[in-house]
Design a protein around this nucleic acid. Sequence first.
DNA 1: AGCTACATCAATGTATGCAAAAGAAAAGCC
DNA 2: GGCTTTTCTTTTGCATACATTGATGTAGCT
Lengths: 219, 219
Amino acid sequence: MRGEDDRLNASDSAYHALRDEILSGVLKPDDRLTEVTLADRLNMSRTPVREAVKRLLIEGFLTRAPGEGLRVTGLEPDEVQQIFQIRLKLESYGARRAAEHATPAEQDELHRLAAVMSGHTPPKTDQDFDTISEANAAFHRTIMLAAKSPRLGAMMSLAINLGLVLRTYRMYDDHDMIRQSRHHHDIAEAISARDPDWAEAAMSSHVLAAAAVARAFKG
Amino acid sequence: MRGEDDRLNASDSAYHALRDEILSGVLKPDDRLTEVTLADRLNMSRTPVREAVKRLLIEGFLTRAPGEGLRVTGLEPDEVQQIFQIRLKLESYGARRAAEHATPAEQDELHRLAAVMSGHTPPKTDQDFDTISEANAAFHRTIMLAAKSPRLGAMMSLAINLGLVLRTYRMYDDHDMIRQSRHHHDIAEAISARDPDWAEAAMSSHVLAAAAVARAFKG
DNA sequence: AGCTACATCAATGTATGCAAAAGAAAAGCC
DNA sequence: GGCTTTTCTTTTGCATACATTGATGTAGCT
């Protein structure tokens, strides 16, 4: 899943490149951008850049000033918590539905991913971090698929994109990551037990814990 | 807000045209489409159609079959209820935030819109229907604005688009519409009272009532 | 006859050129 | 000198041509 930018089409790689630059802070809030500028920077024509920009506009990462160009949307401190609130509601609903609709294969996959995560937790190397990060993303994606709701899927992918703002795992210390890993096991078990209430509560707890970490984090 | 298709750019009007055709059933689920076909039908080039299609893909109204073209996404009966569940969670959160952040002007606007609705309820003419429908949309949009959260706004606009599936007001009888109108007054009052719990509960009640109507509706 | 390889076609992806809208700056008018 | 008008520039919107990809079918070989 990494280093395959070549295999992606230009439109998608433009989208990811821009989003990463926004999230990582290379493009700072209130920076003025223009489609041609971006196309030059990414060595491609305006067309794919345009598509990427349009998507980022819809998702709220960019805003277009009428006659002036594009601006990176600033992220108020309060907004991080709002994003967690939205994820809380959508993901806990997703977990509930997953408990109702997950196939055996999906249940196994969730347990496997949870095991991968705990196997590398607490992380010792950057490699561990990458593995965990990927397994984490796959875990949540699998739950979304198991929820068997294309519409919810569309919403969640947006919310998860927003959630990427917090991909800075530097916020998490060892204790936090161990807890997070345990939560994933809880969620997988709740889904295997086909217990929607448990799955919803476990996911809520998981998201709220992450929100608390983010709230406590300074710097 | 009506009859101004001319003032919209091609890309947006393509989006609305296609979405309306999907929602109204002109384009039926599993219909096979192609970008050129659509461009011809709408008398424009592929470029704006492409943008519209991409957005509809993101929103889940269309899906792209790898080597085959585009398909209109079918709407399982269960999915209508799922959409209501999503709206329930997002809109009640929006109402909560609106109660915390609405300006006096926004509060007045909500009361005004609620009054417009009840003034035309129960509707006697198609004109009344249009007025109500518009005031209803404006009401929910105002709450979204009052919530003062661009990210939530992005999510809600997606959810509200999904909610358009239910714009068929034919489901509602007079009794339902009177109740709906009363709910809007409740919500406006809760927000004016700056009572987040009340606002959230009132909005939940409102959405769940609509979900119940949809569930009971056959044909 | 069955399989492989190549040709062909349909659909999407990308580049580029031109048109239109919106601001900003400069020139003319009062 | 201040205000209006015009033009120039910047940025986005749209169309068209070309490239690429993947599917289908057909011919040739075994």
